[in-house]
């Protein structure tokens, strides 16, 4: 009876959460574990030992100086135990890692590794402890409900990333990046992980289907230019005001000078 009920729950994502949460409470692990638990899947199994070893080598030569030889973390970088494959993939494939300067936040830079190398490092970090996996097609297929996606984007994302996905300012020099060049996978990973100052949007808050809706909407924005002409950076009234003064009024003043000058 109970087993049936549990099976039923397991089929829905919400149910999965309940079960996992209940289980974790029994074990008595802390909240960090809960965080990881929400979208965990067994990872190590799918990777060959050779790949993990290769990843370890890359890790030791490129990451260990800040994150520690065993990814336990140092004063310069947090521990990577339990951050999951998704985190490695997000940070490295957007060029944020390896980090360069110690600014308010990690910058997007040219990517330093090949896809194979990134996958190997992700596999290695994933093998250390369970953590969020790289999101699959259920998140990133881009065939979701575009209207719901827009609605969810405005409620959950637009305040930082701007309604048109052009990014915006946070406090003390931090900022929310623009999303017009982000891949579906990157966006999904960001929502799952909540990298740096971004909050986490776990699958209980925004379901995988809803994440796919948001990605679908963003892909629409990425592929459709404005019907009205050049978007002026999509930044709203400020750039519009600048163009009104410098472009529109400026052009007209140039004409008035021609108009007022004597003809020869």
């Amino acid at each position: 009876m109970l087993k049936n009920k549990l099976n039923g729950l397991r089929r829905s994502p919400k149910g999965l959460v309940v079960i996992l949460f209940a289980g974790l409470l029994v074990v008595g692990t802390g909240y960090t574990a809960v965080n990881a638990a929400v979208n965990t899947s067994p990872q190590a199994a799918s990777h060959s030992a050779a790949q993990i070893n290769y990843g370890k080598k890359l890790f030791l030569s490129n990451c260990a100086s800040c994150h520690g030889k065993n990814a336990e973390g140092t004063a310069n970088g947090p521990t990577l135990i339990g951050v999951g494959e998704a985190s490695v993939d997000f940070q490295v494939s957007t060029g944020r890692m390896p980090g360069a300067s110690s600014g308010p936040q990690m910058q997007v830079k040219p990517v330093q590794f090949t896809n194979d190398e990134i996958a190997a490092m992700a596999a290695f970090v994933g093998s250390l402890a369970t953590g969020p996996a790289i999101p699959g097609a259920e998140y990133t297929s881009g065939n979701g409900d575009i209207q719901k996606g827009g609605e969810l984007f405005r409620v959950n994302c637009a305040m930082c990333h701007n309604a048109a996905g052009k990014g915006g300012a946070l406090t003390e020099g931090k900022y929310a990046p623009e999303l017009m060049h982000s891949s579906a996978k990157t966006i999904a990973e960001a929502m799952i992980l909540g990298p740096q100052n971004m909050p986490v949007f776990n699958d209980a808050n925004i379901t995988p289907q809803e994440k796919n809706d948001i990605i679908t909407y963003l892909q629409y924005l990425q592929t459709h230019s404005s019907a009205g002409g050049d978007e002026l950076g999509g930044l709203g009234p400020v750039t519009e005001g600048l163009l009104a003064w410098l472009g529109l009024l400026g052009l007209i003043i140039a004409i008035t000078i021609w108009l007022g000058a004597k003809s020869n």
Binding site: G150, E151, R154, V155, A158, M159, C160, H161, N162, A163, A164, K166, G167, G168, A169, A176, L221, S226, A227, G228, G229, D230, E231, L232, G234, L235, G236, P237, V238, E240, G241, L243, A244, W245, G247
Partner: peptide, 27 residues
């Protein structure tokens, strides 16, 4: 003809809960 101004379709209808980064009035 060449420059978009106030792309209202990006913002969605008014809802008191969401807000967009870069919310500014006209100049």
């Amino acid at each position: 003809s060449f420059f978009t101004i106030n792309p209202i379709w990006n913002y969605g209808g008014y809802d008191p809960s969401p807000v967009s980064a870069g919310t500014q009035p006209d100049w």
